[in-house]
Design a protein around this nucleic acid. Sequence first.
DNA 1: TCAGGAATGATAATCATTATCATATTGCAA
DNA 2: TTGCAATATGATAATGATTATCATTCCTGA
Lengths: 143, 143
Amino acid sequence: MILKQDAESPAEATSKGPPKPRLTAGQQSVLDVLQHQSQPLSAQALHGLMRRQQPIGLATIYRALDALKLLGLVQHRVTLTGETLYSAVEHDHHYLTCLQCGVSVPVDTCPVKELEAQLQGASSFRIYYHTLEFFGVCDQCEV
Amino acid sequence: MILKQDAESPAEATSKGPPKPRLTAGQQSVLDVLQHQSQPLSAQALHGLMRRQQPIGLATIYRALDALKLLGLVQHRVTLTGETLYSAVEHDHHYLTCLQCGVSVPVDTCPVKELEAQLQGASSFRIYYHTLEFFGVCDQCEV
DNA sequence: TCAGGAATGATAATCATTATCATATTGCAA
DNA sequence: TTGCAATATGATAATGATTATCATTCCTGA
């Protein structure tokens, strides 16, 4: 597979925010794909997409996603079917999901930013991202 | 197992809110346990707890949890290890979780109520509950 | 009281994710 | 630049939570 180990890590210039160590080739390609994607993707979907271009193992993708999460570059959410979906941290992705049919519609408002900043200060955590999901029943599924 | 089919369903008196059909015995006992629990529990943890009292199959617990979710009586969240935790809908349970060690600390503020009400009106969903989770790295795990 | 439908339990099957391990690659030192 | 130790990768087996299956039991309504 590809192995270049180049790709100046993002936000390397400004020494602000979380540390940004160099990414492995696998991590970099996974991140690239996610950053060009408008929708969150599962690891297996990523695998399907990426293996066309450059062969890459599924295990590598899982490992890369974990590493990127830990670097604050990638966020995750879990669907009702138990799949984990990943997306680049930059846009919030919040949803309203039907517990019956599983349909998800995006929610564009996000009232959480302030609280996140506040928690950031009050806790001993470095906070990277949050998930906000609403669950209910859509009108199609209404009794 | 127990099968009494009694237990006047909660909020049956006031005809407000989502419909509250009679619960099966299994559903009722699962709900009872969850309502007396201060922490969210996994299906398997519930099974461990409940089987001591009255024998109940694990499958029944999963089925009961699904039904209770659909009735708006139980909410769920998913841990980093992929376990689903359930709790009675009434208290919000929001957390700040370390992506590295998995430690979760409760967050007591919740700025989402208003948005939920707003969505309730604007969408065609009947919204039952939401999850709000923050992810980052705790100081123990800091590099 | 009886029949049909729903609920239950035990267990097999599923499926996303993780662990394993042999191989390949990288970074570093001589 | 070469050699080596540490790390990354891939293929695949193993794991573990959840779901499906199916025979049995219970409940409700005629």
